[in-house]
């Protein structure tokens, strides 16, 4: 039980931390000043969620690891984030598509997790739900603007959707960890979120005049630590300080 809860919480923490890390890369380089601020805000929400989730995971584990040890001192194969969040920023359309797919899932996910029998997860979910609603609105509005904007923006938005679509299947994966925790009333069964997720995307993409790809073949592996090649580079940058100066206070 403890180990399942630890794994589950850690995966959620990794999702948030890695997406926050990617979004932070935009700061100072966004298409408009408003987006420099907006994307930093979304990044901050994810870093905040990661801190709460890592701290709780450390508590559940009971081995004395804190948020920073869990984030900065684990290796590639130990990270359980989904592949979607680690995908590189690409152009602005790719960043927006990644966020749309993720937030359209996370909004109903957090809403449902507020009913978890685990009080800490339920409390974290209550805060994260409000944030996810904003992230979905932000990425949804940009998807519509780009899809229904110029010929170039439409092509880029469509490319981004097509490129990232195969990474959405993993959001709905449920292994033994998830199944056992769902049975306990701790976790959310992702399959129960599929209809809402699809309806959200259909609404946004319809207004954006963009067709959604067919279901098709889906990527998998993140939850069991098989990541993209670019992921190791993300970690080597993110973990540099803790690796170069072990055991110091910052």
């Amino acid at each position: 039980m403890t180990s399942d809860l630890f794994t589950y919480t850690l995966r959620l923490a990794d999702d948030a931390a890695i997406l926050g890390q990617r979004l932070g890369e935009w700061c100072g380089h966004a298409p408009t000043l408003e987006e420099d601020i907006g994307l930093a805000n979304v990044a901050l929400d994810h870093i905040g969620q990661a801190r709460n989730l890592y701290s709780y995971a450390g508590e559940v584990e009971g081995a004395g690891r804190d948020e920073d040890q869990l984030c900065f001192l684990r290796k590639e194969r130990e990270f359980g984030n989904c592949l979607l969040v680690e995908q590189q920023n690409g152009d602005f359309a790719q960043t927006i598509a990644r966020q749309l797919f993720f937030s359209a899932f996370m909004l109903p996910f957090w809403r449902k997790l507020t009913g978890s029998t685990d009080e800490t997860l339920a409390a974290i979910a209550a805060k994260a739900e409000k944030e996810a609603a904003y992230h979905l609105r932000h990425s949804g509005e940009w998807t519509i603007r780009l899809g229904d904007g110029t010929a170039e923006s439409r092509a880029r938005m469509q490319d981004a959707i097509d490129l990232l679509w195969p990474y959405t299947g993993e959001l709905f994966e449920a292994d033994g960890v998830v199944e056992r925790l769902v049975a306990e009333g701790v976790a959310v069964d992702p399959e129960t979120l599929r209809d809402e997720w699809r309806a959200t995307l259909a609404r946004v993409c319809d207004e954006a005049t963009l067709p959604l790809p067919p279901e098709g073949w889906m990527q998998s592996g993140g939850r069991s630590g098989r990541h993209s090649e670019s992921f190791g580079h993300l970690l080597s940058e993110m973990q540099y300080m803790q690796r170069a100066y072990p055991g110091m206070r910052w």
Partner: peptide
């Protein structure tokens, strides 16, 4: 931002740079 040594420092730095914007 991408290399801040702790999550707390990363959040503070992001918030600061966001303030500058």
């Amino acid at each position: 931002i991408s290399r801040a040594p702790t999550l707390k420092r990363k959040a503070a730095l992001l918030a600061k740079v966001q303030d500058e914007g």
